[in-house]
């Protein structure tokens, strides 16, 4: 039996979870809601995260996020791909900028962007 403590990141409450595993079953305590249990179980098997970053466009940066959780171990691979992207057109909030072949997770713009210098003046 292995015991592990972790903070749930599902909401600002930040429950302190205790997770006991024996290889087969996962026992979670300390969670306020069912999401905590789900989080802890996933955390033991394969931790996943939403990734947020920015994509470079001609006149500024476009904020982006993944529309689902990606494997924590894949974060830096995703960052490489995001860093390689260049946008030179208008983008609408919610627009898909990239789709991951393996898991079908998509990178979406979280703000609209107009490809004009004047619209992106820094002050």
């Amino acid at each position: 039996m292995e015991e592990k403590k972790m903070i749930c990141i599902e909401c600002p409450r930040g429950c302190e979870l205790t997770v006991r595993t024996d290889g087969k079953s996962v026992d979670v305590s300390g969670n306020f809601c069912p999401r905590g249990k789900k989080y802890a179980q996933a955390e033991v098997v394969c931790p996943r995260r939403i990734l947020t970053s920015t994509v470079r466009a001609r006149y500024g940066m476009i904020p982006v996020r993944t529309d689902g959780e990606i494997k924590k171990s894949e974060i830096f691979r995703w960052m490489e791909r995001i860093r390689a992207m260049r946008i030179d057109r208008d983008v609408k909030q919610g627009e898909v900028l990239l789709t991951d072949d393996d898991e079908g997770i998509r990178l979406i713009a979280t703000a609209s962007y107009r490809n004009e210098e004047g619209d992106n003046a820094a002050f």
Binding site: P12, T52, T54, P63, Q93, T110, S112
Partner: peptide, 25 residues
């Protein structure tokens, strides 16, 4: 919020995790 591109906004109010720009929009 325009520069707070991370998620976690709106969980209490909208029961969903939004980024700053999405919450502002």
């Amino acid at each position: 919020l325009k520069q707070c591109i991370h998620n976690g906004f709106g969980l209490t109010r909208f029961k969903e995790s939004m980024t700053g720009p999405e919450y502002a929009a």
